[in-house]
């Protein structure tokens, strides 16, 4: 496969030459996805924990919807955010459409269900073990949340990485709300789509390899941090 050979050579050349355009795209990809993960975790972790701790009418429905939203097609998320942020939409006056901010919003929408649903499951399991002890210490449900999140941290790290994976890999949402504007909202995945549509398959695949390497690097770093902490704290 000449295309595949070319792709590896292209990927290598892209990385070795530290192509400034590529650097910009990589930096924006990371910025957008990391920001989305940060916001997603900030909302999703407490939300998931709350769902694990409180029983209320309709809770089952919320859990089912959350689990289902884990499979939300990125294009649908993108379209929803587009209609929301468009000038004609309810949040139009913020002028966020076709900015990295809009891409962050779309990705948050994609990864929030993943983070919240998986957090709920992990916290629920841990709470089954901790409940009586925490109750004995006189902790209200609200005050149990930080304790449970902290003690579930190793499992939650994987949850957050799953969110990061989805955010950095998706293209449908950021394409619609970002517009793939050169130098402004072009990220790795939209650049790959663009190069594919130009028929420049080696470059597209090369960019894909760079993206893969980047995601692997981040996962590797998180794994190392997690393993070290796990060995230290059990």
């Amino acid at each position: 496969m000449p295309t595949t050979d070319n792709a590896f050579a292209t990927a290598l050349r892209l990385v070795l030459h530290l192509d400034p355009a590529l650097r910009e795209i990589v930096a924006l990809s990371l910025q957008v996805s990391l920001a989305a993960v940060a916001v997603g975790a900030l909302i999703g972790l407490p939300l998931g924990a709350a769902l694990a701790l409180w029983r209320f009418p309709g809770r089952g429905a919320v859990v089912v919807v959350l689990n289902a939203l884990m499979g939300l097609p990125p294009v649908v998320a993108g379209l929803a955010v587009y209609l929301l942020l468009s000038r004609a939409g309810p949040l139009g006056q913020f002028g966020l459409l076709f900015t990295p901010g809009a891409m962050v919003v779309a990705q948050v929408l994609l990864i929030l269900p993943i983070i919240a649903a998986l957090t709920r499951q992990q916290v629920e399991e841990l709470h089954a073990e901790y409940r009586e002890q925490l109750q004995s210490l006189g902790l209200s449900r609200l005050r149990r949340i930080p304790t449970l999140l902290w003690d579930a941290r190793f499992g939650l790290m994987t949850v957050i990485l799953a969110g990061f994976g989805r955010a950095s890999a998706e293209v449908g949402a950021v394409m619609i709300v970002g517009g793939n504007i050169d130098g402004v909202t072009r990220v790795m995945t939209t650049a790959i789509v663009l190069e594919t549509s130009k028929g420049n398959l080696p470059l597209a695949l090369g960019l894909g390899l760079v993206l893969l390497a980047l995601v692997t690097l981040i996962n590797g770093a998180a794994y190392l941090v997690g393993e070290t902490a796990r060995r230290r704290l059990g």
């Binding site: 002890q133 004995s136 304790t147 003690d151 059990g234």
Partner: peptide, 15 residues
């Protein structure tokens, strides 16, 4: 003021 010790102690994942 009360405290309780269980048959299988529940300790947090910390030092």
């Amino acid at each position: 003021r009360q405290a309780m010790v269980f048959q299988r102690p529940v300790l947090l994942k910390r030092s």
